[in-house]
């Protein structure tokens, strides 16, 4: 009986979104009297930071400070349409919709500024600090609050924009079978190092080294958080988590977190993360979706590492101690 170490690798291509019925997501933007741009969405933030990155995308396109953007999400009764937060699609879809809406709103914003500054709309530019100014004459400028007041109370204009992401469903070519099921694809490679106790069957993940190619990063700290969190979730899927881990009968399914085992803080391995940026052609500012893949890519790397350590051929997960010991028995009876 021994503690054996092994190394495994995985590589993953991961699609962004899906192409059923156009996969639409809409965004509506309007400017309030105080110069705040409200972006209305039905897309939901699950805690991954969607509201932050979408506000960044909106602020970038409008040319206004991040603080001037308010993301209003989560009410499907009153909001515009969104297919949902799934398939690693929402930054890509809602981001594209926001860019489209923001460009329309920006046009009206610049028209009002031009009227106030007695210049032509095409000569207007934003400084990103809360002002619209005349190109080449930085002193001729108007603050967003004054611009908003002028729009509402002097010109009777609404600064607003409509946006939608829509990918036409082209179906399947009957001759070739060719189709276009997703948008862009992100890529990942994970290397796992594990230690397996051949007496107890327990597996300890020692290290996860991850490389993710995810297009342009909108917010690198949130990207890092997603990869770290996904890595540990993937570790849980690889080693512990199953709705029916030990019994085939549904009534023996886990009823709580003592039976459905999640990774805990002492299970966290050393993690090393690298991010590569190859901007996508169709994502907002080159974004690719990568949220889900962070929990998927570690799983085959960890299972491969276990097989490397033991010389076994386990092809299922979670690799519980029971599975490890069965695989060792099978290997012994073969030899």
């Amino acid at each position: 009986m021994a503690k054996l170490k092994g190394t495994g690798i995985s590589s993953v291509n991961y699609p962004t979104g899906m192409n059923l019925g156009g996969d639409p997501t809409q965004a509506l933007i309007h400017m309030t009297t105080t110069g705040t741009f409200v972006i209305s969405l039905a897309s939901c933030d699950l805690g991954q930071g969607l509201k932050t990155v979408l506000a960044q995308i909106g602020a970038e396109t409008l040319g206004v400070p991040f603080e001037n953007v308010l993301i209003d999400t989560g009410d499907t009764d009153t909001g515009p349409h969104c297919m949902g937060t799934f398939a690693s699609r929402t930054t890509h879809r809602a981001g594209n919709a926001i860019i489209m809406a923001a460009q329309e709103a920006r046009k009206t914003m610049l028209e009002i500024a031009a009227d106030e500054l007695e210049a032509r709309p095409e000569d207007m530019e934003t400084d990103g600090q809360g002002f619209v100014r005349v190109k080449g004459s930085p002193d001729r400028k108007i603050h967003l609050v004054n611009l908003a007041l002028a729009g509402h109370f002097k010109y009777g204009k609404t600064v607003a924009g409509r946006g939608i992401f829509f990918k036409p469903n082209l179906g399947i070519d009957p001759e070739t079978g060719k189709m276009d099921p997703d948008s862009t694809e992100a890529h990942a490679c994970v290397m796992a190092e594990v230690e397996v106790d051949t007496e107890t069957g327990e597996v300890k993940v020692l290290k996860l080294q991850s490389v993710y190619e995810i297009g342009r990063q909108v917010n690198p700290k949130l990207v890092e958080g997603q990869i770290k969190g996904g890595s540990v979730m993937g570790l849980g899927h690889a080693l512990y988590e199953s709705t029916e881990p030990y019994y085939p009968s549904p009534e023996h399914r886990p009823g709580g977190f003592f039976e459905y085992i999640l990774p805990l803080a002492p299970d966290v391995p050393e993690m090393e993360i690298r991010v590569l940026e190859y901007p996508s052609a169709d994502g907002p500012y080159g974004v690719k979706g990568f949220g889900e893949m962070t929990a998927n890519a570690p799983i085959p790397a960890i299972v491969n590492a276990i097989n490397n350590a033991l010389g076994t051929e386990i092809s299922t997960h979670p690799v519980t101690p029971e599975i490890v010991l069965q695989a060792l028995d099978a290997k012994q009876s073969k030899s």
Binding site: K228, G229, V232, L262, A265, P266
Partner: peptide
Amino acid sequence: QAEVAEAISGNLCRCTGYDPII
């Protein structure tokens, strides 16, 4: 680091991977 991990080992977190909390 190990003492922090042990102290929070009764608390589940699904999002962060614990590493940033530690």
